[in-house]
Design a protein around this nucleic acid. Structure first.
Lengths: 119, 119
DNA sequence: AGCTTACTTAACTGATGGGTTGAATATTGG
DNA sequence: CCAATATTCAACCCATCAGTTAAGTAAGCT
C-alpha cells in the first residue's frame, strides 16, 4: 500500500537501528500485530509504530489491516537490492547460516531485556 | 589505527549514505589518496575526510600513511558480519553478480554529477 | 628555514532521527 | 450508542549528522 521508494539509502538507514533489526528478527519467526511487536521493548508503542513505518518505507516489511489489528510481515525481497550490493565486496564468499543464527540471537538479546523467553 | 567497533549499527549507518557507498565503489577498483577520493564529488575535502573517518570506524576501509599521502583501501572483511546478517532474510537466494555490477554503476553515476561526461 | 601539498580538527549551522506525551482515529464488543 | 482496544498523528525535546569555512598539523621540496 505504501508508494515505497526502496533505495539503498532508506534500506541501510532502516537496518542501522538495533531495534528495527530486532523487529525484523522477530518477524522472521511469525507475522505479528503492532502491539505484539512492541511488547518486548521498553520504548513506547508510538516509538515502535514509527520504527515500523521506517521499515515499511524501506520495503523490508508489509502491513495489512485485518479488523482493528494491523499485521506486520517480513518482505524478504526488500533486502535483495541491498544484499546484492553488499555481496559485491568481500570476495563473494558463501554465507554461513550458522553465523547468521548466532548474530540474530545476539541482536535479539541485546535489543530487549527478554522478559519471558526461555532458551 | 582506529579502535574499531565494527558492530552492525555503525556498518549499516555507514552504508546508508550514497557518497560513502560511492567511495566504496571507487576503492573497489583501486586504492586511492584522500584527495583523489574527494575529486569527483562536489563537497569539500573536509566533508570527504569525515566520510572516510566514518568508513574507517565501521571497519569498511583502512588508511595507511605513506609520506604525506594517506592511502585508503577497501577492507572487505568489514562487510562480512553485515552480509551474514542480511542473508538470513530473503530465502537465502544465490547472488547475481551482474545485478551487482548494475547497482554499483547506478550508484556511482548518481553520487557525483560526472563532471566530464557528455549527456 | 620557508613554501607547498595533503589532510584533519574546530566551531558553527541546518536538517534529520529517535524518543516522549497526549490527543485523534478506527474497529470491535456489549 | 458507548466503551475498550489497536494504532497513528502532532507537537515537542535533545542528540546526532552532513555540510560549511577557517585554522592547525604533517611531510616533502627547494
Amino acid at each position: 500500500m505504501a508508494p515505497q521508494n526502496p533505495n539503498l539509502d532508506t534500506i541501510f538507514a532502516a537496518l542501522a537501528d538495533p531495534t528495527r533489526r530486532a523487529i525484523l528478527g522477530m518477524l522472521l519467526e511469525d507475522d505479528m500485530s503492532v502491539t505484539d511487536v512492541a511488547a518486548p521493548f521498553e520504548v513506547s508503542l508510538a516509538a515502535i509504530s514509527k520504527h515500523l513505518a521506517v521499515l515499511v518505507a524501506a520495503g523490508l516489511i508489509g502491513q495489512e489491516r485485518r479488523g482493528r489489528i494491523i499485521w506486520c510481515k517480513l518482505e524478504p525481497e526488500g533486502l535483495r537490492s541491498a544484499s546484492v550490493w553488499m555481496q559485491g565486496f568481500g570476495q563473494f564468499e558463501p554465507v554461513d547460516l550458522d553465523d547468521f543464527e548466532r548474530f540474530l540471537l545476539t541482536e535479539l538479546e541485546a535489543a530487549h531485556p527478554d522478559p519471558d523467553e526461555q532458551p
